[in-house]
Design a protein around this nucleic acid. Structure first.
Lengths: 151, 151
DNA sequence: TTTTTATATTTGTAGCTACAAATGTCTTTG
DNA sequence: CAAAGACATTTGTAGCTACAAATATAAAAA
């Protein structure tokens, strides 16, 4: 389905507006998919994201602002996400001894195990999209998105 | 900034994954923008969306399922959005006389006035993006997004 | 050293989605 | 007609973001 068919609008629209709608719609579809893939594991997409960031630290503990910075969604409320992960024993949190304003967040082995279970499932989901496109087209799509954002 | 620079990941990733991330990031940026544009008018992006759908009905009242269907976000909780709009006197809601299970939602003149105030502001925001692209590139971007979703 | 300012995080409030269960109304069927 | 089923919407619960205000600690300035 093209975006035109999806919204079956009566009035014609500018290419800009069509792109804006199309990005929104496509992102919705992607998010729904991820969500349903994660659901059986009792973890939200955002919590999953935090776990991946922590794994990326390779042992080094992360503080809250580092996590926030990497989250793409400006003001995801990191405190409350970490609270949830803590309750599931997927992360640890302790006050940084050298600077007691900061927190040191680490991933537990239980957290790492969950991620290694999830990895293949997520890859499968991500690679379900764009199957009908060549690598060149995929790269072009990313390049056009980069250019689109460029104000 | 390219998406690579945004996430500064240490490991290389597949073109598919890069696109997935890029769509998410771009949509975030767009949503933030819309939100800040609507903020002074005390209306959320979702409420704005419902209002536009109602205007599109050109006088015909809409029932809840019609609104839901047009909302792109599968399960936006239409009841609660309409509640908010009702409180601001931007819409009307009454039980459909021919089928009392249904609701008839209409936009008030106050709602229409708000929309006509918002229209130019939104267009300006939408057209801020993609300024550095040709119409052909914008159309190509939409086409690639359509193709990407095509499972 | 005391005050001020900056930094790091948390918390409160309001709005949102996702999903399932509950409610109320119509329609079909025995 | 009455029960069973389908349909349209609402409501409850849990998770999420956005923004601002509050807290706590560290660093800088007077």
């Amino acid at each position: 389905m093209t975006i035109e068919e999806v919204i079956k609008s009566s009035v014609p629209m500018s290419p800009q507006k069509r792109v804006v709608l199309n990005i929104g719609y496509t992102q919705n579809k992607l998010a729904e998919g991820i969500q349903s893939v994660l659901k059986p594991f009792d973890i939200s997409a955002e919590q999953f994201n935090v776990l991946r960031i922590l794994r990326g630290q390779k042992g080094k503990p992360a503080n809250m602002s580092l996590i926030q910075e990497r989250m793409l969604a400006k003001t995801s409320n990191t405190t409350r996400l970490v609270d949830k992960l803590l309750a599931k024993e997927l992360v640890t949190r302790k006050i940084c001894p050298s600077n007691r304003r900061k927190m040191e967040i680490g991933i537990t082995s239980k957290g790492l195990e969950l991620l290694s279970e999830l990895d293949p499932v997520i890859v499968t989901h991500e690679h379900a999209y764009g199957q009908k496109m060549s690598v060149e087209e995929l790269e072009q799509l990313s390049a056009l998105l980069d250019k689109f954002r460029n104000l």
